[in-house]
Amino acid sequence: MSVNFCGVELAHEVVNASGTFDPLAARRTFGEVAFTDFPFSAHVTKTITVAARQGNRPPRLWEAPTSLINSIGLPNKGIDRWLEEDYPELRKLPVPLIVNVMGFDTDELLKLVGVVTGLEDVVAIELNVSCPNVETGTIIGSDPDECARTVDAVRGLTTLPLIVKLTPNATDPAAVAIAASEAGADAISMINTLRGLALDPATLEPWLGGGTGGVSGPGVRAVALAQTASVCAAVSIPIIGMGGVDSGASANEFLAVGATLVAVGTASFTDPMAGSRIAGELAGLRQL
């Protein structure tokens, strides 16, 4: 069902979660059909930083009951190479782009938002605030004041909708959402992954190269749904709900608690076309 998100008309409610679907790698594997039949109504990019990042040392994955713990570490080529190599290709997608960025300080964030805001086919910017403020060490997204300052710093730079992606690892995500909204955020997306720890069964030492990791998948859905419901009740801006969505029925739950869009992440790993299936199932449910 077509839906209006911050003034942008999207073909249906299902987008991909940042960092869980790479259209360029999918095209190498599945051919042009991965573009022409793109499963989502908008493409949210993996988090882009100013400098290139290698990501964390392996191992990066741990399979837990109906969930995945990852410590990927935001590998990406940095904004300059993204702009040169990936953006011209991503523009060929039949859907609009939402660019997810993360700055480790205000200057970085200003640079990222400044570059992205002028780009054609980019309809919104998503701020990944699940990173520490290098000056204070606080995870920006876990603290209402830090989050408000961050949104405030970039708000004047762009007229594009600014989406703030909340971390569930905050004491009170609704308070962070209110602060972001008051500072001028146009939308909230949530949840990012929940902090989790996997131990090597043989040594009982941390398994993942990054120490702890982020938990995603159906196992986190109840937490995501509760947090989404409380944030939807607290702010009036649109919400992109996510966390363990793997069917039209589970997507519909996020819409029921007030989300405008639903993002699908881990479910794409087991089926690259999960997004299309979920959008189809959702349309069926909404027609009833």
Partner: peptide
Amino acid sequence: EAPMACGFGACFGCAVE
């Protein structure tokens, strides 16, 4: 071999140096 979650470049989990 590397541990893999997706197999088509979506998760960045199968990193090899």
